[in-house]
Simulated scan of single mutants.
Amino acid sequence: MDYLIPKKLPYDFLKSIDVVSIEQVKVDVQSTSVKLECYNNVIKYLKSNNGEIQFGWTFSQLGNIVLKLTAHVVVKLPDGVFKCVTPSEHNAAEIYFSPDNTVASLLNNGRLPARVYSLVDDEIVAKFVKLESLQNKMRLDGNLIAIEYIMNEKHLLSQRLINSFNAYS
C-alpha cells in the first residue's frame, strides 16, 4: 500500500482543517531538478528565471482512509501562476497544491514537514496515523533510530491496516 495522488480531494475534510485554497499546478521538470528536493529545485530555477518561492502543501492519500499533506515549494511566476519544477514521485503532470506561506516557519534541519490525518473513524487507522506523525517528527529531527523503531511498529500493524484499507475501499 502506497500513498497516491488523489484523483479527487476530500474537500469537506480539507475545509474542516482550514485548507480552502487549492490549485492544480502543472509539473514542468527542469533538467537539473531532483526528486524530493523541491526547495533546492526552486532556488536553482529562480537563479536564471523570474518568479518567487511559494510554500504550501501537496496531497496524497492512502486509499480512502488516510490523507497526507506534504510541505512543498513551487515557483510563483510573475503573472501569479504556480509552476512545480520538481519531478513527481508518481510521474504526475499536475499536482494539487495549497499555497501556505507559514510552511516556511516549519522548516526543521532543512527538511519540510508532513501532516497526516485519518479520514475514517477506525482504531487501527488512528494508530497508523499516530505512527506516521511521529515518524515525520523524528525525520525532521534526524532521529534515525526512532524512525527504524516506528517503521517496525508500522510493519507489525500492517495486516490490520490492510484489513481497514479494504473495509473502506
Rank of each mutant, 00 (worst) to 15 (best):
V25Y: 12
V27G: 05
Y39Q: 03
E37N: 14
Q30I: 02
V29F: 07
V42P: 06
V66Q: 02
N64G: 03
N40V: 09
K68E: 11
V27Q: 01
A71D: 02
V73D: 10
I43E: 05
W57M: 06
L62Q: 08
L67C: 06
I43A: 12
K68F: 02
S48H: 01
K68V: 08
V27C: 09
V29A: 07
N40S: 14
V25M: 08
I53N: 04
L62I: 03
Y39G: 02
E52D: 12
K44Q: 12
A71K: 01
G51T: 08
K44M: 04
I65T: 09
V34R: 15
L67F: 11
I65E: 07
D28I: 14
V25W: 12
L62F: 08
N40H: 12
H72N: 10
F59Y: 10
V66N: 07
G63T: 04
S33V: 08
N64M: 07
E23F: 15
Q24W: 14
Y39L: 10
L36Q: 13
N50C: 06
Q54Y: 02
G63S: 02
N49T: 00
G63K: 03
L36W: 12
T70G: 15
Q54R: 13
V27S: 04
V74A: 14
T70E: 15
S33G: 09
K26Q: 15
E23W: 11
L62T: 03
D28R: 11
V42K: 01
G63Q: 03
N40W: 04
S48K: 04
K26G: 13
K68Y: 08
L46T: 01
N41W: 00
V34A: 13
V34N: 09
W57I: 07
V42Q: 02
I65K: 00
G51A: 06
N41M: 05
L62E: 11
V34W: 12
V29K: 09
N64V: 09
N50S: 10
F55S: 02
Q30T: 03
E37G: 08
N49F: 01
N41P: 03
D28E: 13
E37L: 02
N49I: 00
E52Y: 10
E37A: 13
V27N: 03
V66I: 13
Q54W: 02
T32H: 07
T58N: 14
Q24P: 06
H72P: 08
Q24M: 12
L69Y: 04
N50V: 08
L46R: 03
T32C: 08
T32P: 00
V34M: 11
F59E: 08
K26Y: 07
G56Q: 01
V73L: 11
N50L: 10
F59N: 06
L69V: 10
I53S: 06
